[in-house]
């Protein structure tokens, strides 16, 4: 004797299992996000005759020009990340520990620029450093330090400043989140045990907040690596992978090479994502 459940109705219901709700979104990203990236990777290892080749990667990793481009991309991102830490940490510390009633205003001022268009901010730097921009007008007319306006259009420093400007709010928010979670009693204990303010900061607060610095650093590095608009308009002679992809697409039209560069950028991004997940998981446990 078998016990019959009222099973027949369960068949259409099986389609409505709750996990089915994620299927459309996952399918969409698999088809339109993952497949194109995989196809792009394949394009980079197929030569004009349709055979397999690693020559593009060989070129990217040995040719001194391409090596410099890759190195410049990574160094630029690392530099921007480092500057963002140095500038962002004190701001995050002030926000969490000292701001008092100004906290709301500081958070607003941090988030508001995130909502302005990237073109606007790039244009802003162009206005500041234009031939008749603020900096030149002050130097020439107000201070009389120089006779003729300076030409800033080829200064990588401005591109770096513009990138830091775009990315440092992410750093501040990442560090602030972790600083917020530090148990103040640990710092008080250090003080009771005789540590001065700086020693307390150096030996207690800073080490405890390094997770936030790490999260912020990965995030900033990741976005800086793919940054494109800022460098197209303020490049200052910098040659990075995103700019090279843009050029290969626009002028050289060497799509295989552009695919290989895209794949290198992608690999860097995936490594960053992996590190980010490990860090988040460690903090969670």
């Amino acid at each position: 004797m078998t016990i019959e459940f009222t099973a027949p109705k369960a068949k259409p219901a099986a389609l409505l299992r709750p996990w089915a709700l994620v299927v459309p979104a996952v399918l969409f990203l698999l088809v339109f996000f993952v497949v194109p990236l995989v196809e792009n990777g394949l394009r980079s290892v197929v030569n004009d005759a349709g055979g397999f080749t690693l020559s593009r990667y060989g070129q990217l990793l040995t040719d001194s020009f391409y090596l410099r481009v890759t190195a410049e991309t990574v160094l630029l991102s690392a530099g921007v990340t480092l500057i963002s830490i140095v500038i962002g940490y004190p701001v995050a510390y002030f926000l969490v520990r000292r701001s008092g009633r100004w906290a709301g205003l500081i958070i607003f001022l941090l988030i508001a620029p995130l909502l302005t268009s990237i073109i606007m901010r790039t244009f802003g730097w162009q206005v500041l450093f234009a031939r008749r921009g603020l900096v030149n007008n002050v130097l020439v007319d107000q201070l009389g330090l120089i006779d003729a306006p300076l030409r800033f259009s080829n200064s990588p420093e401005i591109a770096v400043a513009a990138l830091v400007h775009v990315l440092v709010p992410f750093m501040v928010l990442s560090i602030a989140t972790v600083l917020q979670s530090i148990d103040l009693r640990l710092e008080e204990s250090a003080k009771i045990l005789g540590a001065g303010r700086f020693r307390t900061f150096w030996e207690v607060t800073l080490p405890l907040s390094l997770d936030g610095v790490g999260t912020g650093a990965i995030l900033v590095f990741m976005i800086a690596n793919g940054s494109f608009v800022t460098l197209v308009l303020l490049g200052g002679g910098l040659q990075t992978l995103p700019l090279m992809i843009y050029q290969q697409f626009n002028t050289t039209r060497d799509f295989g090479m552009a695919s290989a560069m895209s794949t290198i950028l992608l690999v860097i991004a995936v490594v960053c994502l992996f590190l980010q997940l490990r860090l988040v998981r460690r903090r969670g446990s």
Binding site: V22, A25, V26, L29, F32, F33, V35, P36, L37, E39, N40, R43, M222, N225, G226, F228, P242, I245, Y246, F249, F255, A258, S259, S262, L265, L266, A269, C272, L273, Q276, L277
Partner: peptide, 30 residues
């Protein structure tokens, strides 16, 4: 697996957009 799926659904934020654009152009043209 749900948290893995969540990570996957959020992952486009971490990928360089110029790569997404370049790769999509070829795939969508196809």
């Amino acid at each position: 697996w749900a948290s893995a799926v969540m990570t996957f659904l959020l992952s486009p934020l971490s990928m360089p957009m110029i790569v997404i654009g370049f790769a999509s152009l070829f795939f969508l043209s196809w």
